[in-house]
Amino acid sequence: MTAAAAQTFTVIGLTLDVDCTELLIAAVLPGPVADQIELLSTSEADFTRWAEEFDAPDPDTAAALAYERCRRWDNEN
């Protein structure tokens, strides 16, 4: 069996403002469209809207990479 080729996915969700390690994913879209997504101004009391692109073989892997990115962000800041 051969490995699936990586493609670009855009993950859209909300991060918890308290520590930014919690990510609630709303969608995983095929393609590099993060720069085309206009995140509306934040109106939630405890969350920030979030979108980022990831290269992965499938949407589930892109979502897992997004979760890992948020966990690393908290350790970096």
Rank of each mutant, 00 (worst) to 15 (best):
I37R: 01
P30H: 10
D17W: 07
F47D: 01
L24N: 03
A34V: 11
G13H: 07
A34Y: 11
R69P: 00
M1T: 12
A45D: 11
E44Y: 15
D17N: 09
A62L: 12
T8E: 05
T61S: 08
F54E: 09
F54N: 10
T42S: 02
D74W: 14
D60K: 04
G13D: 04
E68P: 00
S43N: 07
L40Y: 12
A51C: 06
G13E: 09
T2M: 12
T61N: 09
V11H: 01
N77Q: 10
A6R: 15
M1R: 14
A4G: 11
E38Y: 11
C70M: 07
T61P: 03
A6C: 12
L23T: 01
I37D: 00
S43G: 06
R72C: 05
S43Y: 07
V33Q: 01
T15I: 11
C20D: 11
D55C: 12
D74E: 15
D17G: 05
R71Y: 08
A51K: 04
L24F: 11
T10I: 13
T10M: 07
L39T: 00
A51T: 08
A6V: 13
A5N: 09
E38R: 03
T61G: 02
R72N: 09
L40P: 06
L40M: 08
D58L: 14
I25K: 00
I25C: 00
T8Q: 08
L14A: 08
Y67L: 14
E53P: 09
Y67G: 02
T48Q: 12
V11R: 03
V11C: 00
A63T: 10
T8L: 10
L23P: 02
A66L: 13
M1F: 15
E22R: 13
T15D: 03
D46W: 05
N75H: 11
A27D: 03
E52N: 07
T2A: 09
L40E: 01
N75V: 02
